[in-house]
Design a protein around this nucleic acid. Structure first.
Lengths: 87, 87
DNA sequence: TTTTTTTACGACACACGTAACAATG
DNA sequence: CATTGTTACGTGTGTCGTAAAAAAA
């Protein structure tokens, strides 16, 4: 499981859509779609139900969201504390 | 920051050596060396002091260790809970 | 010489953006 | 038609293992 995949997942979850998520992240729909597919294949469960104008998380998606937020929070805090101030 | 890099980092920290870490992970020294180098370049600080027969973590390395253990623990728990039993 | 880390190399896989397609309303 | 998600492709980058080099004792 990759951290960038988790960031994509969080964006889709919170934006409730792939295209909106892609705008938030600063990338393209196809990439978001691909990363979520990788995550779903890795976990062996679907994470979202795709509907028109509404992407709703499955039960597994709901479970993953809490973990994902926790992971990226810890990683971001680690980077912030350890990275030397630029310059 | 990649989770696999963190796994490599933890292995080096706990095995106190790159070659021992590579055996634990099941890969090769050169890969461990490369991943640690990537992590150090990303964070902008050295994580280990390389000595003969003794790889000692720097202060940044010590700090990172706690975060890294936390991250992989959460990720592994998430995978364990969400992944369906392999049939 | 033995043990350990780094670097160079080639093969393979992944990630990104572009663009076309499919589907829904 | 407008919007959204998926799929296909080309290019660049990363990752892996093999192998050679460098450093330390």
């Amino acid at each position: 499981m990759d951290v960038n995949d988790l960031r994509h997942f969080i964006a889709v979850y919170e934006a409730k859509g792939f295209s909106r998520a892609s705008r938030v992240i600063g990338t393209v729909q196809s990439n978001v779609s691909g990363r979520i597919r990788i995550l779903e294949r890795y976990l062996g469960v679907p994470l979202f139900e795709r509907r028109y104008r509404a992407v709703v998380p499955t039960q597994s998606g709901e479970r993953l969201y809490g973990y994902a937020k926790q992971v990226v929070a810890v990683i971001d805090e680690a980077a912030r504390e350890i990275k030397p101030p630029p310059q």
